[in-house]
Design a protein around this nucleic acid. Structure first.
Length: 596
RNA sequence: GGUUCGGUAGCUCAGCUGGAUAGAGCGUCAUCCUUCUAAGAUGAGGGUCAUUGGUUCGAAUCCAAUCCGGAUCACCA
């Protein structure tokens, strides 16, 4: 149990025994004491002053006296200022805590709880390469999966690949028209970029044809957009694809192979993977049966043109189509089918979809429809909605060439970490392989930390003009503190100094105590991060811990401590800090180097 | 227009289940490497917490209204 919970419990017990009044534990507010006052934790008294009919000061004195007298293993003293009861925690509590955890390399990680959760993220389109927005999505999905695991859940990471539809046909048409048989191999290009280029070519040609039709045939813009030969060809190709035309399918498969090879490279570079990948080409027909059943049940209704709808106006939403008049399924139908499919395969009660906030409405509707259909998976559907990554100039637009490409950005980050490392010249004895690993760790650490340190729900601004920071509130700072600690620990090992458990220390210095106080919070932070689906809680926490340690480090010597006892204590502190920083970074999908 | 998310330092962001004098990082200025890694530490400066009203012992935090910005409301996915 966390210390603040212990304090709450002790306070409830005290109030109950002093005044025979029962106050719920969670209504008691316990905060860290402000540095300008004496004490470690503060109970805010105003809330129950009225109920207990006491002045804040009298209540504080009585409560404080009782708490100290009855919890001698927890509190050493108290003071009351206005309505705040400041409690001092006994040093033995902190040293005990440290003794019990300093060798624990998985400090903060909860044991398995037997529950299963699915996390779906990434969801790429096969007609263009991954960009910065995908990176935020991938890092978020990965991190949430890790955070849930750390809370004891069994996690299945899934990906739905958007591999069919008119947009894919556009790349295919353009390739047929313009490629002259070129391939990623023949051009030396990464497959996803190769295919993405043809998607751009399609749009350029489409635009040209539309303008031509407007000029030569005096068509309206809308009319020309429908009649341009290249769009008609794409539409025909989609029909051919759906009817199983062998030639079209063969081309589709060939181009998909290129794209997947490209995606694989990117996923490998950013350290991402999935336990199960679904392909829309295989799932797009799912859900049709469910529409039939829904019609029978009266959840859906049919219009005269035989399209099928659901009326959600009673729930504050609109009417929504679930099957087209030509009988084909729409986006939402596929998702209903996939939800059922996933549930039948894994039987997880919770299914998290990491998808941008532009689809908030879609997921509201999806969950509602599933509930109305009485699907067992319905209540477990949770849309982890995150904000878009924008540029200072606004949204990223592929048509205007303002997309920040994922591969480019990753390469740039690794390159910058290489340059910075070389400038500092601290790892000249590294082998080329060790150097490559280090640059990767630092570059990706910086990138992941940067994208995960802000609240996922908020949109974030990325300025390509200013490169991502390596100093201050960043991944490399945390990595640096970790490497520093490791360096000290290595030195101790080299000197044959063993870190043994020690007896209680009664003269903890403020700098020493500050770190233990911070460390004690880690398990609570991991729980919060899971509850809120918010990796930034972890990022902020490990940054604060690293900062606290860094201050401590610059003020007090570890190797040349005043006594052997203190030396050991500080080494224990350093070690548990290193474990915690490492675990925290791992929860963000980032690594920590032993040296940098 | 309906729904919804946001507006905190020059910039990027914390803090939001109401609690003490609103915090970081970057940038600016100053100090510190013969002592465990300076990707560091210490300090200075920087605020009408969008605006107005309300709730109360107390509001950046809760409520209402207003202003500004984003997303969404497709027989696209």
């Amino acid at each position: 149990m966390s210390l603040t919970n212990e304090i709450k419990q002790a306070t409830t017990a005290a109030i109950s025994s002093l005044y025979t009044v029962n106050i719920p534990e969670n209504s008691i507010l316990v905060n860290a004491t402000k540095p300008e006052f004496e004490g470690d934790y503060t109970v805010v008294l105003f809330a129950f002053v009225k109920q207990l009919k006491k002045s804040p000061d009298a209540l504080g004195q009585e409560l404080g006296g009782y708490l100290v007298a009855n919890n001698p293993t927890l509190f050493t003293g108290f003071n009351v200022i206005k309505g705040f009861l400041n409690l001092s925690i006994i040093d033995s509590f902190w040293t005990d805590f440290l003794q019990s955890q300093y060798t624990n390399t998985t400090y903060g990680i909860a044991p398995k709880n037997g529950e299963k959760v699915m996390v779906e993220y990434s969801s790429p389109n096969t007609n263009k390469p991954l960009h910065l927005g995908h990176l935020r999505n991938n890092f978020l999905g990965w991190s949430i999966a890790e955070i849930l695991k750390a809370n004891g859940y069994d996690v299945v990471k899934t990906c739905i690949v958007n591999d069919r539809g008119i947009h894919i046909c556009k790349s295919m048409i353009a390739w047929q028209l313009f490629a002259n048989g070129a391939t990623p191999e023949s051009t030396g290009m990464k497959g996803d970029h190769f295919v993405g280029d043809y998607y751009v070519m399609f749009n350029d040609e489409y635009k040209r044809q539309v303008e031509e039709l407007i000029v030569t045939k005096r068509m309206t813009k809308e009319g020309a957009e429908k009649k341009a030969p290249i769009i008609l060809a794409a539409q025909q190709m989609l029909l051919d694809w759906e009817s199983g035309n062998e030639e079209v399918i063969a081309l589709w498969e060939r181009m998909n192979t290129w794209v997947y090879a490209g995606f694989d490279t990117t996923y490998k570079a950013i350290g991402s993977n999935f336990d199960r990948t679904y392909y829309e080409s295989q799932t797009y027909l799912l859900g049709k049966d469910l529409v039939e059943k829904g019609l029978e049940k009266g959840v859906f209704y049919q219009k005269e043109d035989s399209s099928v709808w659901i009326d959600l106006t009673a729930d504050g939403l609109d009417e929504k189509i679930v099957r087209r008049k030509d009988g084909t399924s729409v986006y939402i139908t596929q998702d209903i089918g996939l939800a059922v499919d996933k549930y039948e395969e894994y039987h997880s009660n919770k299914s998290i979809y990491v998808v941008g906030d532009e689809q908030n409405y879609h997921f509201k509707v999806l969950k509602l429809i599933c509930q109305k259909l009485g699907l067992p998976s319905a209540d477990g559907i949770f849309h982890l909605s995150y904000g878009m990554v924008e540029l200072p100039t606004g949204k990223m637009k592929s048509r205007e060439g303002t997309v920040v490409d994922a591969d480019d950005l990753v390469a740039e980050m690794i390159d910058i970490s290489k340059k910075k490392t070389e400038e500092l010249g601290k790892v000249k004895d590294f082998t080329p392989e060790e150097l490559t690993n280090l640059y990767n760790t630092i570059g990706l650490g910086a990138l992941k930390f940067y994208l995960l340190r802000v609240d996922p729900k908020k949109k974030m601004i990325f300025n390509p003009e200013e490169s991502i920071e390596f100093q201050g509130f960043t991944g490399p700072f945390i990595q640096f503190i970790h490497a520093r600690i490791k360096s000290i620990l290595r030195k101790m090992v080299a000197e044959g100094y063993a870190i043994e458990p020690i007896a209680i220390i009664n003269d903890l210095l403020p700098q020493e105590k500050a770190i233990i106080v911070e460390l004690e919070l880690f398990p609570t932070v991991i729980q919060d991060a899971a509850q809120e689906y918010d990796p930034s809680k972890i990022a902020i926490y490990i940054y604060n811990l690293a900062k606290t340690f860094s201050s401590f480090y610059s003020e007090l010597s570890i190797a040349n401590a005043e006594s052997d006892e203190k030396k050991t204590l500080r080494l224990q502190l350093a070690q548990l800090t290193a474990h915690t920083l490492k675990t925290g970074m791992q929860l963000l999908g980032a690594g920590v180097p032993e040296r940098m």
